[in-house]
Structure formats: C-alpha cells, structure tokens
C-alpha cells in the first residue's frame, strides 16, 4: 500500500494507527508478563521474608527444591488430583458425547445445557457446596451412607478422599466443556464412514472402537493437555476447602498453594502462617510451575499441528 521502505520514517507516519492498535498487547505483555519472569529469576537468588532486608543466597533456593519434602508432596498431589479427575471425565464425557451425537436425538440441547451449567459457577461457590455435601457431620453424602447403614467417611481429612473430593469438583465443573469438545470432534468425523461399516455388519461397539475412537485421538490429546495445564494451576479448590492450607497431612497441598504459603499470607487476612515466608523460594516454585506449563503448551501445539496439518 504505502511505497515507503521498511525502516524509513514514512512508515511510522502512514501506519502509526496500525501500530498503535496492536501495541497495547505487546507493551502489556512486556510489562506484566516478561518483566515479572525476569524479576522472579533475580528473586530466586534471594532469601527474603518480605519485611526485612533480602539476602543473596546464590542457588540455594533452587537446591532447596530437592530437600523440601513439601515440594514432592505438592507435586504428587497436583499430579494425582489431575489424574483422579481427568480419567473419569474423559471416559464419561466421551460416552455422553457418543450418545448425544446420535442423529435425531430428542432433548439434545437440554442435555448439553444441563451438563454445561456447572462451568458457569465460580470455583469458590462450588467448593462451598461440595464442602457441605462431603462434611463429616450433617454432610449430605454421609447422611445417605448412614441411611443405607454404611459407615460415614472422613471425606475431608483422609488424604485420598480429600483428593477425590477435589477431583470430583474438577469433574463436575469441567464435564460440559469436555462433552462439547468431544461432540465437535465426533461431528467432524465423516458420518458415511460409520454407516458404511454398519452396512458391512459392524455393530455399534465395533464402529466406536475402530472408527470413532481412532479419529478422536487429536481431540483426546487436546483435552488431556489443556486439562493438564489447568490441573497444574489448581489452587482455589483446596485453598477454600481447607481454609488456606493443604488440609490435614497436606493431602490437598498443590504446587500453586505451596507457592501461596511461602508468600506468608500476602493477600487475604485470616490465613495461618504454615511455613516461614520466603519470597525467594516462592519465586522458585513459580518458575517450576511456569516451566511445566510451557512444556505442556509446547507439546499441545506440536501435537495439534501434527494432527490438524498446520491449521
């Protein structure tokens, strides 16, 4: 359009509106994305409780990762909660998507709406509701168990049950998203493939196993990796469920929650101090989470590009 060469002052004059329109993103990303990252690298060489003078400690904070038992606990919990939630939600949403994708099914929109509804709720609200459902005394679930003559369960004190309750919240909120994604994946599969197989005498299970499932592989990879990206950042559920801590025996301690604990109660009041605040160590934990997220996103990108042919 403009005859001016790159680098000549004429470009800025004739295109300044274009540059000004796209500039806010880059400026904000630099200021609030890149600068904090680099600053975190510097902080990771310091020991600082946030009040006194920071003290330079070299790489001590990084080696501390390996001899702080809480780190392993948090990383393990984060992974376990992800798996406990991801596997049932993938299987369940896939099953529901296959049923919902049948031609001329009645009430399709109604089902979709009902399953998607939890997605609209805030995690804090969901956690409060689940806290009451699974409470030891007067909780709905234990009441039911009691009525059935079964022993009440310590849902919010036993580490495995705590993780299961958190996973159930993740499932409840995420199911609708997964369902929609699987339905989109199924509708992209050529219907005539399944019909041809059926004419050849293949039953519905066979059609599902040999046609639907393999062709849904890209969708599966996508939901798993985006699920892992969300799972890596899980924070609100345990934080609200256990009042700012990882709960009994740190059974609900996640990586984000651990980082939060090392801030020493920055932010909302009423948090008990669980560890000696150290912003340097918190920065290291932040970098670990950051690195894991970048790796997951890179894997996601690469696999998506492979399966969708550079779309």
């Amino acid at each position: 359009m403009s005859p001016s060469k790159p680098g000549s002052p004429g470009i800025l004059r004739s295109h300044w509106r274009d540059y000004a329109s796209v500039a806010p993103f880059f400026l904000l990303f630099a200021a609030f994305g890149l600068v904090p990252l680099l600053y975190a690298l510097y902080l990771s060489t310091q020991s600082w409780d946030g009040i006194g003078e920071p003290e330079s400690v070299g790489l001590d904070q990084w080696t501390r990762l390996f001899h702080t038992p809480d780190v392993l606990t948090a990383a393990g919990n984060t992974a376990l909660i992800f798996l406990l939630g991801q596997i049932p939600v993938v299987v369940g949403a896939l099953l529901a998507a296959v049923i919902l994708s049948q031609a001329r099914l009645k009430f399709r929109a109604l089902y979709q709406t009902a399953f998607f509804l939890p997605q609209v709720t805030s995690v804090v609200a969901v956690t409060i509701v689940f806290q009451s459902l699974f409470a030891d005394k007067y909780g709905f679930v234990n009441n039911i168990l009691d009525t059935l003559g079964l022993p009440a369960q310590d849902w919010l004190t036993d580490p495995w049950k705590m993780r299961a309750v958190i996973a159930m919240m993740v499932i409840w909120r995420g199911f609708g998203y997964f369902l929609i994604l699987f339905m989109a994946g199924i509708s992209a599969i050529d219907r005539s493939l399944g019909e041809a197989a059926q004419l050849d005498g293949a039953g519905p299970v066979r059609v599902f196993r040999s046609i639907t499932l393999p062709l849904l592989a890209p969708t599966m990879i996508f939901v798993t990796l985006t699920g892992a990206i969300a799972g890596m950042q899980i924070f609100t559920e345990p934080q609200v469920l256990f009042g700012g801590s990882g709960g009994p025996n740190n059974g609900g301690l996640t990586m984000m929650l651990l980082q939060y604990e090392y801030l020493g109660g920055i932010g909302s009041s009423g948090t008990v101090q669980l560890v000696k605040p150290d912003l340097g160590f918190a920065a290291v934990i932040g970098w670990v989470i950051f690195t894991a997220l970048v790796l997951l996103a890179l894997a996601n990108n690469r696999l998506l590009r492979k399966s969708f042919g550079g779309r």
Partner: peptide, 21 residues
C-alpha cells in the same frame, strides 16, 4: 507470529514478582 508465541507463555503463575510490581 510473536503474538502466537506468547500464547504458550503463562503469565501470572509466578505470583511474587507480579505482586511486587
């Protein structure tokens, strides 16, 4: 292209420096 690259860079997960800023 630069904007697309930034899509994979999570911001705000490193709480401390953002909070300091």
């Amino acid at each position: 292209s630069a904007l697309l690259v930034t899509l994979i860079i999570p911001t705000g997960v490193s709480i401390v420096p953002s909070y300091q800023i």
